[in-house]
Design a protein around this nucleic acid. Structure first.
Lengths: 143, 143
DNA sequence: TTGCGCATGATAATCATTCTCATATATGAT
DNA sequence: ATCATATATGAGAATGATTATCATGCGCAA
């Protein structure tokens, strides 16, 4: 149960934290903005403050439960950390996000960091492009 | 001269634009925040407004003279566009930025986008690590 | 159950960035 | 060189995302 995830992260089990974890787990798309989380919880009848959403997201991030991404557009998006590392490709028209993992890229990154004298800690790789999904806003413009 | 760069970018040649271009060209480090540009121009005795700095940076970006990066930390940094594409590795302690280019990574990115049905437009790849430069704030913490 | 300390919600504050608008200026035509 | 006009500028207000403050509430170990 989610309570365990919280406990083992060293966090007290509270209503807001449980609700947020649930929402993150049950949301397809998986990449949510703080505002979106706040709105959805309000709409679901929960009583929660925006400040709490930000606070808890930061705690989740520190605990490794969640990853914060800075895609283009000025606001951060949060993603539940399940499964192994991956990077992202984002549609510049509709914002759809796909994930991918490429071992040869990972390997090159490690080699590059070493060559430049850095102890690699993290990285962000995000591709931006026009997707081919029907209904994507850019359908007409694309090509 | 810089005036030509501005003209061919379709921009009028004005004092603020010239000063900003000069500063970008003569700054080592090369990755400047809008505030930093503003401060340096003020310190140099120029009369310029912060709004102008932001406006002009946006114009430079649109004209391809400058690239905007969103490294961690909530503020954008701007870099004069000279030479070919490259990615970055940033020291998490001292903020030092190095550049690199890796053709095999570029190639894999194109292949991945295609496989996922995206028309690749752009990408950001930033590595974060601890650098080995003497004087880096993280010297003690780092191994 | 009780007490304490951390958690929460409302709201103010902050930070980076953008907008507004009156004034100043670059530039093409005269 | 002079003018007319569209564009650029600077000061400060406005915005949007995020963080801090603080009084109150609640999880949890004893």
């Amino acid at each position: 149960m989610e309570s365990q995830d919280l406990r083992s992260a060293g966090l007290k089990v509270t209503g807001p934290r449980l609700k947020m974890l649930e929402l993150l787990e049950n949301t397809q798309g998986r990449h949510l903005t703080a505002e979106a989380i706040y709105r959805q919880l309000l709409d679901a009848g929960e009583e929660i403050g925006l400040a709490t959403v930000y606070r808890v997201l930061t705690q989740f991030e520190a605990a490794g439960l969640v990853t914060r991404h800075h895609f283009e557009g000025g606001h951060a998006v949060f993603e539940l950390e399940r499964g192994p590392h991956h990077d992202h490709i984002v549609c510049v028209h509709c914002g759809r996000v796909e994930e991918f993992y490429d071992e040869s890229i990972e390997k090159r990154q490690r080699a590059i960091a070493e060559k430049l004298g850095f102890n690699l800690r993290d990285h962000t790789l995000t591709l931006y492009g026009e997707c081919n999904k029907p209904g994507c806003k850019g359908e007409k413009n694309a090509r």
